[in-house]
């Protein structure tokens, strides 16, 4: 078998990163693998991608995929600011951000919500395991109430739901997935990359060291048994025909993304959730929480919401591509302004 290449002539190896230093079996590694697979499959040029992260186990992972992409490992909870500045400076960049539940749900909750509110174009992945790994096992803000951990004891506080926070901040793309469900992660990632605003992917990504026992809803054993996908998701790139099984009318929904690609959602019982209905999305999350259901899939999408560049009325040319002549106004402009200010013209 010859070496396989994608549409731009790159091999899968051209998308790989350094060796992971995370624990063996960590959910984050499987997400990194899906990012590699998706960028290869979509024939994305690695140099068009920027990898962004905050601080924590999750935030180390940009070193483990896309070695040929620039990256910025920022501060704890502050990746949204870096994403906002870099994508505003260069709107051609595809930003893939990797955060964790401590990074997003605690220290960075404010920045997260403001990024979502501005609809900054970034794929914002939260690798959510309910626990602080690098500091050895404290509860994070997404941990279940009543959960027990060896180090931390009993968690008495209700969890912060990343998807709910995103929705409340008017997110234009909200999905939840499970690191153990590779296919769904992959299809959602493709859609998130093609989405033009902030795409929030809350991926339950088990911590095999501190939080992987069956009683935890952030564990592999729990996820494998309890995951209830809302839809069977297939991403169809632009210009490819949508062929769907119409045997069950009303069960299939196609969501068109901004670049002409589609997300085909084959709805699974019992939810029949419409991801373009925001109130339904709120209800879905709350009802799932009350019923202790682990629902995954596309929760909400709104392709028409203006991005930060649009609400800022910016030119399409990336700011970093402006020439020095375009950046520095000519001498006559300064003279004209000074004339206006000078005594006694």
């Amino acid at each position: 078998m010859g070496t396989r290449v994608n549409l731009i002539g790159l091999q899968r190896n051209d998308y790989k990163g350094g060796d992971s230093t995370l624990c063996q079996g960590c959910g984050h590694n499987s997400i990194s693998n899906q990012i590699v697979a998706v960028c290869y499959e979509l024939s994305i040029n690695p140099h068009d991608v920027i990898k962004l992260s905050g601080i924590g186990c999750s935030s180390k992972s940009p070193a483990y995929f896309l070695n040929r992409s620039h990256g910025f490992n920022a501060l704890h909870g502050r990746m949204p600011a870096i994403a906002t500045g870099s994508t505003t400076a260069n709107n051609r960049l595809i930003a893939i951000g990797v955060s964790g539940d401590g990074d997003t749900g605690s220290i960075g909750l404010g920045q997260f919500k403001h990024m979502v509110r501005r609809n900054v174009p970034v794929v914002y992945i939260v690798e959510n395991n309910g626990v602080y790994g690098l500091t050895k096992g404290q509860f994070s803000a997404t941990a279940d109430i009543g959960q027990e951990l060896k180090y931390a004891g009993m968690n008495e506080l209700p969890p912060i739901d990343i998807c709910l926070e995103a929705l409340a901040a008017d997110a234009s793309f909200v999905a939840r997935s499970f690191a153990g469900d590779s296919k769904q992660v992959r299809e959602l990632l493709k859609a998130a990359i093609r989405h033009r605003g902030t795409a929030v992917l809350d991926i339950i990504s088990p911590c095999v060291t501190f939080n992987n026992h069956e009683s935890s809803t952030k564990s592999y054993p729990y996820g494998k048994v309890h995951e209830e996908p809302l839809q069977d998701i297939t991403f169809i790139p632009e210009q490819e025909p949508i062929i769907v099984d119409m045997m069950e009318p009303g069960q299939v929904q196609a969501v068109e993304l901004h670049d002409g690609s589609h997300l085909v959602l084959k709805k699974l019982d019992p939810d029949k959730h419409d991801p373009t209905d925001k109130m339904a999305a709120f209800r879905l999350i709350e009802e799932a929480r009350e019923a202790n259901q682990f629902i995954t899939g596309l929760i909400y999408v709104e392709e028409d919401r203006p991005t930060l560049a649009e609400t800022s009325h910016m030119v399409d040319t990336p700011l970093v591509h402006l020439t020095d002549e375009q950046l520095r106004p000519p001498r006559e402009k300064l003279d004209r302004l000074l004339d206006h200010l000078t005594c006694c013209n």
């Binding site: 870096i82 906002t84 500045g85 870099s86 505003t88 400076a89 960049l93």
Partner: peptide, 13 residues
């Protein structure tokens, strides 16, 4: 914090 972070993101880009 957001302000300086955005500036650094833009400067890096």
């Amino acid at each position: 914090i957001g302000a300086i972070g955005m500036v650094i993101g833009a400067g890096w880009a």
